[in-house]
């Protein structure tokens, strides 16, 4: 698969750009967290496209961001289950 570039991304409509980035991120995230991959990818897709492109080129920063997302999710899930509203 050819590397994704900013110009390739810019050629796509905005909504499509996130999908394209997600398609690149998902397999990488899936390799680390198969069960959370869809959720983590969705969280990372809220980051700026330019930053996501940098992450795709830098496995280390991508990995640390993935771990950050997992941590955020875990805290979120704990607080959700402790609230027990509704």
């Amino acid at each position: 698969q050819e590397p994704l570039t900013a110009s390739m991304l810019a050629a796509a409509p905005p909504q499509e750009q996130k999908q394209i980035l997600g398609e690149r991120l998902y397999p990488l995230i899936h390799a680390m967290h198969p069960f959370l991959a869809g959720k983590i990818t969705g969280m990372l897709l809220e980051i700026d496209n330019s930053e996501l492109l940098l992450m795709l080129e830098s496995p280390e920063s991508l990995h640390s961001k993935i771990e950050e997302a997992v941590a955020v999710l875990q805290v979120h899930q704990m607080s959700e289950s402790s609230h027990k509203s509704a």
């Binding site: 991120l25 969280m43 990372l44 897709l45 809220e46 950050e68």
Partner: peptide, 21 residues
Amino acid sequence: RKSTLNPNAKEFNPRSFAQPK
């Protein structure tokens, strides 16, 4: 509070992801 990641983000559904062999 350093994380800007949103745990309520919409889940991403891959269109073309195939399991690696």
